[in-house]
Computed example of a mutant assay.
Amino acid sequence: MKPLLVLITASSSEEGAGLARALLEARLASCVNLLPGVRSFYWWQGKREEASEVLLLVKSAHEQWDELQAAVRRHHSYECPEIIALAPERVGERYLSWWKGELSRSSLEA
């Protein structure tokens, strides 16, 4: 199992918490951090936009990427949600063991 750090923005803390709970419940994440107070500047449909958002840092796995994207799209309010994956180059051994262990629990509990 290869670790994946996924960045997702949400419109509010409430939406971010709902996404976090959905991803944890489905065992698509071992941990989700919500970082409030994000101010985003971006182009949308030819217009420059600004928005207050929440950033989710999702600890997942490469093998769960497709399922994670589908779950985010199902629960997200945005027409085009930001879902960006980064492959960590290094993760502390003890933390990585925990990270993988929590993601693999879904197969143990099935």
Rank of each mutant, 00 (worst) to 15 (best):
E50V: 10
A51K: 14
A20F: 04
T9A: 06
P88S: 09
Y42L: 07
I84L: 14
R21N: 12
R21F: 06
V6D: 10
V32R: 09
S13G: 12
W98A: 03
S77N: 03
L57P: 00
S104W: 06
L34I: 14
S30I: 00
S104C: 12
V32L: 06
L4R: 04
S12V: 05
K59Q: 04
E14H: 06
Y42E: 09
D66V: 00
L103F: 08
A17R: 15
C80D: 07
W44M: 10
I8D: 09
S30T: 02
F41C: 11
L24M: 10
H62L: 10
G101H: 03
L96C: 12
V58E: 02
E49I: 01
R90T: 09
A85Y: 02
Q45M: 03
W98Y: 14
V72I: 05
C31A: 11
L56A: 05
Q45P: 09
E79Q: 14
G16L: 02
L4M: 09
W43Y: 12
L108K: 15
E49Q: 14
A26G: 03
A70C: 02
R21D: 14
K100V: 05
L34E: 15
E50R: 15
R105S: 14
V91S: 09
L34S: 13
L34W: 07
I83K: 06
Q64K: 11
W98D: 03
A29V: 03
Q64E: 08
E93Q: 15
A85M: 04
P88D: 04
L86P: 00
E14K: 11
S30G: 15
L108S: 15
N33M: 08
L23K: 04
E67I: 00
W98N: 05
W43T: 12
L24S: 04
G37I: 14
P3W: 01
L34D: 06
E25N: 06
A71Q: 12
M1H: 07
V72N: 08
R48D: 02
Y42P: 06
D66F: 00
V38C: 05
W43K: 13
E89Y: 02
L96N: 10
